[in-house]
């Protein structure tokens, strides 16, 4: 099995930097940004985006983690999944611009679950979606607002995102 690297560490850094800028630019008025990563790697990416935004526009963003396990539509179809903690910044999500952050956008079902989860925490002014990789094959009418890289793939292929914080290396690979 040969894994092909489609994003190297520098590519990832560059993509996140661009996304950080796009997020800030897309902000309308004085909206408060809340970056909510979807565990596990989405949470890591949310923190990185937050750090980048702090560098050039300090104080406008907060970050946290939004676990969607309990909202998945396939819970009863698979073995019991262990949820991860949800951490919502102290000021909450009401009237904020929530940016959901995930590593890979695929069927869209995880994001559907996240949209359900977020409304249980309050009523944001808007919800946007940032992903490092969009590999296509949507099963729901969902699209990302900010994409690091579009990687067309076959459903049989496996797209893996590895990050230093969780895997010791920054890379995105695709394997047959």
């Amino acid at each position: 099995m040969v894994a092909r690297t489609v994003l190297h560490d520098a590519d990832i850094t560059r993509a996140l930097r661009r996304i950080a800028h796009e997020i800030v630019e897309s902000r309308r008025g004085d909206g408060r940004l809340v970056l909510l990563g979807i565990p596990t790697r989405g949470t890591v990416l949310a923190e990185r985006l937050y750090t980048l935004i702090e560098e050039f526009d300090p104080g406008i963003a907060e970050w946290g983690s939004l676990d969607v396990t309990m909202y998945r539509d396939d819970l009863a179809r698979s073995a019991t999944r262990m949820p991860a903690p949800t951490v919502i910044p102290g000021s909450g999500v009401d009237e904020s611009i929530v940016v959901l952050v995930d590593d890979v956008l695929y069927s869209g079902r995880t994001i559907r679950a996240a949209l359900d989860a977020i409304v249980d925490h309050g009523r944001p002014r808007a919800v946007r979606l940032a992903v490092l990789v969009d590999r296509g094959h949507r099963e729901l009418p969902i699209r990302a607002d900010f994409v690091g890289k579009n990687i067309p793939s076959a459903t049989s292929e496996r797209v893996s995102v590895r990050l230093i914080e969780t895997d010791g290396v920054d890379e995105v690979t695709i394997e047959p």
Partner: peptide, 13 residues
């Protein structure tokens, strides 16, 4: 209750 009843089998993923 979540651990016992949410999944299709008892084993955590």
């Amino acid at each position: 209750l979540y651990l016992l009843a949410a999944g299709s089998s008892g084993e955590p993923a």
